[in-house]
Amino acid sequence: MATDYKALKNGGFMRQKQKDRFSLRLKVVGGQLTAEQLRTVTEAAETYGQGYVHLTSRQGLEIPFVKLADVENIRQVLAKGGVETGVCGPRVRTVTACQGSDICPSGCIETMTLARTLSDRYYGRQLPHKFKFGITGCQNNCLKAEENDMGIKGGLIIHWLAEPCTFCGVCAKACREKAIVVTEDKVEVDRAKCNHCGRCVKSCPTEAWQGQPGYLLSFGGLFGNKIERGLELTPITGDLNAVLKVSDATLDFFSTYGRAGERFRFSIERTGWETLAQTVKEAAANA
């Protein structure tokens, strides 16, 4: 029987240099696995691999040295323990995320729910080339949003209330963008300098700074053979539905204009950034 490497690759079986051995990629969303899933992975790695796993650069997990003959068996063992195999090839890859505002004191948005939403919506969807989503909870950018084909970064849309303010001066120093000036009886913010980091909100002792969670989106990032930083095309939005409409439109754009084997960045450059910007703006406006 001729081996169908292509079909294998859809299921996350990465061919190794060793004959008939595969490094089996597992599905991970937002970098989290339950203890139960880990036990299953342990069992699978001991039975079908060489008793170890490899952690990939994008929060993925692979079990190396799986034999071709064991492919179905290992799949079943994993499935029983709630672990799915991953994907490779020209499709939507692992959605990565930091722990976000549920766990991290700096977090501006909930990242895990969003990661699951995006993964459920798009994971494995076939496109002209691979497509990566990355979600990072704030400007600290632990998850490197702009490396991704579409990056999502949390921010806060800030609003100052005069009444609770004691003019203590803390926010002016907490702001690294030097966007805030505090005087005896006034707090002024230069909106053009504000990058939505939320440090004023987090540091204000009296809650005079209020912040609404917002999403900063970047497009066309690459960090492989070619390195390009994803670019922002729209202002911050506090509307999660708009984010989903924009990601829908972005993938549709890639399906429509991308050529097989061409990374999203180059499809954008060939089609024109303006065309994508227009698509993205319309999608956000119609949300």
Binding site: V170, K173, A174, R176, R199, K202, S203, C204, P205
Partner: peptide, 9 residues
């Protein structure tokens, strides 16, 4: 000065 006020809060 950027971080201590916030951790105290």
């Amino acid at each position: 000065v950027e971080n201590v006020p916030r951790s105290l809060k």
